[in-house]
Write a protein that binds this DNA or RNA. Structure first.
Length: 464
DNA sequence: AGATGCGGGCGGA
DNA sequence: TCCGCCCGCATCT
């Protein structure tokens, strides 16, 4: 398997995952560059861009979910779970609004699924593939998905627009009649009152009253677990009290707050390190393993963690599943909250068994990839496509762009890096072992995906 | 108006 | 040094 891993790590992605709208846990996926959702770095979770000072890796952190402070039950038995506005200002405005169902305050449940911090997602374009890596297990309900939010908005807009028009028309006619009736002729004095009707009506509509069920545009993703709305309401941009969860993933408040612990199945050995030396120290899952040399890095440190470390390159490596070192601390033992509903496979654990390595595509920071690469152009091996401001980011020879131009060379270098990393791993220093990434490679069992092509490439994790 | 990205900068660990 | 996060700016829908 060692050779297999090396082989895999040194190869171009030979299989891709179907887009995962609700990635959860310490997972990693590889999408085709043609995958629109991946290109847009979309996620069902409300993720906001977070500055990791790394021009090659886009990092996003979860904003959590907005719920009714009183956790009221909607008419359909579900609970309000709004999508937090991504824009800070918009989110502040959103939080000032009230529950459309019970008028109590709205509450933003922050995500603390990654060592007490928000779950983070990392994206990197690698010429021929878009690599995705997630850190953390969402400890809150799913918010309304982006597509649902957009669909609802457009539906509401449409509805408001049409009702506004029809109401306006109706009211105008009615007022006209009234005016005419009361005065026997049209009276301009009534203009003001005549014009208020429509506005008031629209406000009412905007404040949470359900709009008759209607169909929404088809979403790009048909996640069977995602919440759907069959009606819409909102306060400006807030609530849709009619979420429906065709799945058991309905948020249920936990005693003492929203802190779900880690599902038991997540806390036990699931992702044994491929290199057992790493087992002692829960390693930090390194997204795309962007772990690597720091941008000032003079040394090749293939697993110098971080997808999110600042200014470094990525590299495609292979990796086995480990838990994130710091991911275990704050997470408490859990009683299998309904939210997880057993849909969450073990993706990491503190007790890792060396027997079940999960296939990992590790991207070290030695890869010279920048978002410019998204523009099918210049990504050229050894060229500084990173950015002019940080030339140091783009000069390393270990750079690798998945053979965009010189695959053969890249492969070799990748292998070199892999080897270096492996050597290092076999000789774990007291400081960096946790930086080794340990991710499940592949979609969550609970998620739907359809275009796997090379699942045979996936190493057994022993968990599935 | 918001979603998204980028990147400067700050502060804690 | 790493990382979370705030903030402003720019672009796009």
């Amino acid at each position: 398997t060692y050779n297999q891993l090396i082989l895999f790590w040194c190869s171009e992605p030979k299989h891709f995952d179907g887009f995962q709208e609700w990635p959860d846990g310490y997972v990693r996926f590889i999408y085709r560059v043609e995958e629109k959702n991946a290109q847009r770095h979309l996620s069902g979770w409300a993720m906001r861009n977070t500055n990791n000072h790394n021009c090659q890796i886009l990092k996003k952190s979860c904003l959590g979910v907005v719920v009714c402070a009183r956790n009221c039950t909607l008419t359909d038995g579900t609970r309000l779970q709004l999508r937090p506005a991504i824009c800070d200002k918009a989110r502040q405005k959103q939080q000032k609004k009230v529950c459309p169902n019970c008028n109590s305050a709205l509450e933003l449940i922050p995500c603390r699924g990654h060592s007490g911090y928000p779950v983070t997602n990392f994206w990197r374009l690698d010429g021929k593939a878009i690599f995705f890596q997630a850190k953390g297990v969402h400890d809150h309900p799913r918010p309304e998905s982006k597509s649902e939010t957009e669909a609802r908005r457009s539906a509401i807009k449409k509805q408001v627009s049409s009702s506004h028009l029809s109401q306006k028309k109706r009211l105008l006619e009615s007022e006209t009649r009234r005016c005419l009736d009361s005065n026997g002729h049209f009276n301009n004095i009534h203009h003001l009152s005549c014009m208020e009707g429509p506005e008031k009506f629209s406000n009412v509509t905007d404040n949470g009253f359900p709009i008759p069920a209607q169909s929404y545009p088809a979403f790009q993703n048909t996640d069977p677990y995602k919440a759907t709305y069959d009606s819409a309401s909102f306060q400006g941009e807030t609530a849709s009290p009619f979420q429906k969860y065709p799945n058991p993933r309905i948020f249920l408040p936990r005693p003492g707050g929203y802190e779900f612990g880690v599902p038991s199945y997540l806390s036990s050995s699931s992702y044994p390190p491929f290199y057992k030396d790493l087992t002692n120290t829960p390693v930090d899952t390194d997204p795309l393993n962007l772990t690597g040399p720091q941008y000032n890095g003079n040394t090749l440190n293939a697993y110098d963690k971080n997808f999110d470390s600042r200014h470094h390159r990525l590299k495609v490596l292979g990796k086995t599943g480990y838990g994130d070192r710091s991911d275990h601390g704050p997470i408490q033992a859990n009683t299998n909250p309904p939210y997880f509903s057993g849909e969450y496979p073990c993706r990491y654990g503190s007790n890792l068994s060396p027997a079940a390595p999960a296939l990992q595509t590790v991207i070290t920071t030695t890869t010279k990839v920048s978002y410019q690469a998204y523009k099918p152009s210049v990504v050229k091996y050894s060229d500084n496509v990173c950015n002019i401001k940080n030339p140091q980011n783009c000069t390393r020879i270990e750079e690798n762009i998945s053979g965009t131009v010189h695959p053969e060379i890249k492969v070799q270098e990748d292998c070199d890096v892999v080897k270096a990393a492996l050597l290092y791993q076999h000789d774990p220093g007291p400081t960096k072992s946790e930086q080794v990434d340990t991710y499940q490679y592949g979609p969550n069992p609970g998620n739907n995906y359809s275009e796997h092509e090379g699942q045979s490439f996936r190493f057994e994790s022993g968990e599935y």
